[in-house]
Amino acid sequence: MHTVWKGSISFGLVNIPVKLHTATENKDIKLRQLHKECNTPISYKKVCEGCQKEVNEEDIVKAYEYSKNKFVVLDAEELENLRKENEDKVVEIIDFVKLEEIDPIYFEKTYFLSPDTTGTKAYALLRKTLEDSGKIGVAKIVIRSKEQLAVVRVYKDALVMETIHFPDEVRSVSDVPNIPSVDVVVQKELDTALMLVEQLTTVFDPTKYTDEYRTALMELIEDKKANGTVNVTDKKPLPDNVTDLMSALQASLEKTKKPPTRKRTTKTKKNA
Rank of each mutant, 00 (worst) to 15 (best):
M1T: 09
T3W: 01
W5Q: 02
G7V: 08
V14W: 00
N15Q: 13
I16H: 01
K19A: 06
A23K: 07
T24C: 01
N26T: 09
I29T: 15
I29H: 12
E37S: 09
C38P: 03
N39V: 10
T40D: 08
P41N: 12
I42R: 02
Y44A: 11
K45V: 08
V47A: 05
G50P: 00
G50N: 14
G50V: 14
C51V: 07
N56Y: 03
E57H: 07
E58T: 10
D59I: 05
I60C: 03
A63S: 07
Y66H: 05
Y66R: 00
K70M: 02
F71G: 00
F71L: 01
F71W: 04
V73K: 10
L74G: 06
A76R: 11
L79F: 05
N86K: 13
K89V: 00
V90R: 13
V90N: 14
I94F: 10
D95P: 00
D95G: 01
E101Q: 11
P104R: 03
K109H: 10
K109S: 10
P115W: 09
G119Q: 07
T120G: 07
K121M: 14
A124K: 11
L125R: 09
K128P: 01
D132V: 08
I143P: 05
Q148A: 06
L149A: 11
A150C: 11
V154N: 05
K156W: 02
K156G: 00
A158E: 13
A158N: 14
L159C: 01
L159W: 04
M161T: 11
E162N: 14
T163C: 10
P167V: 05
D168T: 04
V170S: 01
R171N: 07
D175W: 05
V176E: 13
P177T: 12
P177K: 09
N178Q: 15
I179E: 11
V185D: 06
V186C: 11
Q187P: 02
Q187V: 13
Q187E: 15
E189K: 14
E189V: 13
L190T: 03
T192K: 07
T192Y: 02
A193H: 01
M195R: 13
V203Y: 09
F204L: 08
K208W: 00
D211Q: 03
Y213R: 03
T215A: 10
L220I: 10
E222W: 00
D223R: 14
D223V: 00
K224W: 12
N227G: 11
N227Y: 06
G228K: 08
V232Q: 07
L245T: 14
M246N: 14
S247K: 09
S252I: 00
K255Q: 10
T265E: 13
T266F: 08
T268Q: 06
T268F: 05
N271A: 04
A272C: 15
